[in-house]
Design a binder for these strands. Structure first.
Lengths: 206, 206
DNA sequence: CCCGTTATGATACTTACGTCTCACCAAGAG
DNA sequence: CTCTTGGTGAGACGTAAGTATCATAACGGG
């Protein structure tokens, strides 16, 4: 068994990193790079790129810009849930709008995959839910954690790139109106929960 | 000027119809046909298909199953807005779930287009908004039409294939829970409006 | 009936995805 | 030093999108 010392040859890791880095830069530049382009930018041959990623989708998914931000709340977060949510949603939507092109690309790639491949792609699971849950933290005193989680999911589903692109493309709302409507929807879901109609949780009983 | 009598040769119309019909059948069968397949099914050559549709996207868009249904309300619609909305949303979601594969395909195609092309594609403008507006009809006594319209848009944005696929793929909700959550969100938006917090309308004034 | 327009088909070309085969090279093991 | 092996590059192949050229049926007008 040849060279295994210290975690085997790190050539693979270096090549993989080069590919991801190159692809990331191209994606950040606003384009959807060809596998050939990404390979060239990484100074690697095209077959090699395919040795690391089964297809373009997987490569570009791995190149999806990583957001390391762990919280969207301001330095001195308000105690009021509604205000906390407003702050988080404001920042989150801003984030989405700023990277709209990439968000659309990733959404399109994710939709192109069949169910089996979707499960394999670790991407498309952003940090939005945990961000929103952090905003909803004050609710944990009065509501079950599962209910809060479900509410966070509902809020994310009205505030993501999917809803935004529909509001823009189909409903043909101006960008600022779309953002405003999303904020209203998010607050309305919270209001309904606070008013005593929390999102349903658990198995259907009917 | 040769033959122009009675609306010129209808050969073009027949060929176009054959293409759309063939593509529609393939799409309804659950596949995303290549231009070649659609052309073959229409007994037409591939270049001819491209003479009628600039690309695959345009062809498949034209093949999008037409829903001629003009209303989603039951025969004897309830007078209560909430119940009317529940009825319409139930039926609408059922419609979306039943044709989920096609819906995803159309969404992916729509996302693939650049802004200029998106404007040219008449598709992706379903009848959902008018269906929802019909459910909200009783609100017209107490709210401006523009507000009702905005509310319908907000409701549609939480009840469409975009939100559904996110709930399923990313939030990993079981199908029945996703549907239930969507119904809750839609009702919550209505509730918020009735409770005196209607969706914002008009130009931003800040 | 002949002529010319028009729609169409046949064919080829370019690009890109994805797969495969084969040769090469470097580096560690003996 | 030699032999083996893992990583890589070169090149070819098949499919499909999209474009372009050229030839040929079909059909209406005179």
């Amino acid at each position: 068994m040849p060279y295994e010392s210290g975690g085997r040859s790190r050539q693979k890791q270096r090549t993989r990193d080069a590919l991801v880095t190159a692809a990331r830069e191209l994606v950040a530049a606003g384009v959807t790079p060809t596998v050939e382009q990404a390979a060239a930018a990484a100074e690697v041959s095209r077959p090699t790129a395919y040795r690391y990623f089964p297809n373009q989708r997987a490569l570009l998914s791995a190149a999806h810009p990583e957001t390391t931000t762990t919280s969207l709340l301001p330095a001195d977060p308000p105690g009021d849930v509604s205000q906390r949510l407003a702050a988080v949603i404001d920042t989150f939507i801003e984030l989405v709008v700023e990277t709209e092109a990439q968000q659309r690309t990733m959404l399109r790639l994710a939709l192109g995959a069949d169910p089996a491949e979707r499960a394999a792609l670790p991407l498309r699971q952003g940090r939005a839910i945990s961000w929103i849950e952090e905003a909803l933290l004050p609710l944990q005193d009065s509501l079950p954690a599962e209910t809060v989680h479900q509410l966070a999911i509902a809020i994310r589903s009205v505030a993501g790139i999917e809803a935004l692109s529909w509001l823009l493309d189909v409903a043909k709302l101006p960008r600022d109106e779309a953002v405003r409507l999303i904020k209203w929807s998010a607050q309305s879901l919270l209001t309904a929960t606070l008013a005593g109609s929390p999102p349903p949780v658990g198995p259907l009983i009917e």
